[in-house]
Each structure stands twice: as C-alpha cells, then as structure tokens.
Nucleic acid binder design. Sequence first.
DNA 1: AAGGTGACCAACCGCGGTTTT
DNA 2: AAAAACCGCGGTTGGTCACCT
Length: 249
Amino acid sequence: MARTRCYDKSGLKKGTWTPDEDRKLAAYVSKYGCWNWRQLPKFAGLARCGKSCRLRWLNYLQPNIKRGSYTKEEDEIIMKLHAEIGNKWSVIAAHLPGRSDNDIKNHWHTSLKKRSTQEYSTSTDSKKGSSNNNYQSSSRKKRRENETQVNANEKINESFQLSPMQSCSTEVSSCATIDQNVESIHGEREVFQEEIFEVSSGSFWTEPFLVDSFSTASDCFVPSFDDHGVFVSPFSPIMSYDELLCSYY
DNA sequence: AAGGTGACCAACCGCGGTTTT
DNA sequence: AAAAACCGCGGTTGGTCACCT
C-alpha cells in the first residue's frame, strides 16, 4: 500500500511512513515524550511535519494500539454512540480502548455506515419501496459526490440532535513496548544499524539521540534548563552497538 | 488475462479551540 | 487584549488490493 513518496516545497516528506521513520519517531517519543509536536520531527531526525508525526504516533505507534478487525461488541458501541452523538470520533474512541479516532472513522465509513443506512432503510423502505443505497454509482467520483450529499444531509440531521460533549482524547505518553508495535506493523524486526542520530542544532540537541531499548513511561522526557538557560541533559552516555543490541534483546 | 469497480486504509488538509507570548 | 503558535478534530483524498465481468 505504498503511497508515492514526495516532498513538499519546504522539503518535508509526505506519504507513507517507512519502518525507519517509525522507529525514529517511536524511539524519540517513547524516550522524551511529545513535548512539542512541531519541534519534535527536527530533533527526532525526521523530515516530517509535526502534524504528520502526531498522527502517526497516535494512530499506529502508540503502545497498546489495537489493529485489525472489530468485534461485534465494538461495532455495537460505535453504532450506538454514533447514533447518540454523531461524528464525534474522538469521543467514541475514548470508549474503545486501543482504537484510534481515525481508525474508527474509517471503519464507520467503510462498513458501519452502510449497515446503519441499511438498517434505517429496512425500517423505512417498507413505505418508500426503493433502495437508497449510495454505493451503486459506477465510479468512485460519483460515489464520493453521493457521499458528500449524504454527509450534508447527515449534518442537517445532526444539528438537531447533537449534545455538547467534551473531547477526551488521550494525549499519550505511556512509553512501553513501542518496538513491538513497530515490529508488528511492519511484520519484521530489522537489525538497527543507524541508531544514533546526530542532531544538528542548538546546545540542547547537540547530544546524540540514541535509540535504546525503549524505556518505560517514567523515562518520558520534559526538557529542563539550568539557571543560565542551558539544557540539562537527560541522556546517558552513548552505548556501543553491542550494548545496544544486548539491551534491545 | 485484462480492465473496471468497490472496499479498505493510511495520511493530508483545513479549521476552530486553546495556550502562550 | 491581541497576536502568534500550537494542538486536536473531522473531512477528504489517494493508493492498493480483491473481486467481478
């Protein structure tokens, strides 16, 4: 499913994340936390925008993220909550541990929405006598045009039924077992040959960024500075490659 | 076998809200 | 108080796979 690689005007990479990028991001966030998404990619050695990093972390690299098919129970919860609160994916996600809002949103659009409209139409079509299935169009473009129309209609309906609810999406920073996530996503464990990332700017970040064995939550990092504004390093001395592998395995 | 279409999913974009300066 | 920076959310797009004709 590789998206074509491309770079935008400012040289930031777009498109599919590579295993290497995942490792860098996972390692960085697990070690230092996400104290500033916009700055993070620079220090993590990634040519990505902060938004992209945040999305990747929240949806795929975060510990305990659940991938794969939805259980019947999960489907029911989504259907029920969606009927109650509409497209509040982050709220719905909060009720489904391990599922990201993006994932739930995709799941809704690809399967639950159809089911939902089918159930709706079976309950009303006995009177109307015709199908309102919007997936009959012959081309993707037409289908999307139809979906846009459906969405507009849904919005009108939702505006009458939405109740205010606070977003409670969790900002992460549990830091365990990131490497397992990366591994499971890419289906392989690659030997790390380039674990030490030299960071180019500033006294703070001239410390090399070391991907170690992905430490625990307590290691999450909040930058601190001394009285002179000089960064106080949380880093331990650089490990040798052998030490690194030992700690990793 | 090849082309068309639907389904799925990863990722980008724009906007609004919140926090910081 | 205002502007800028940042964050999070929801909508949308585009690539790939699988199935059908």
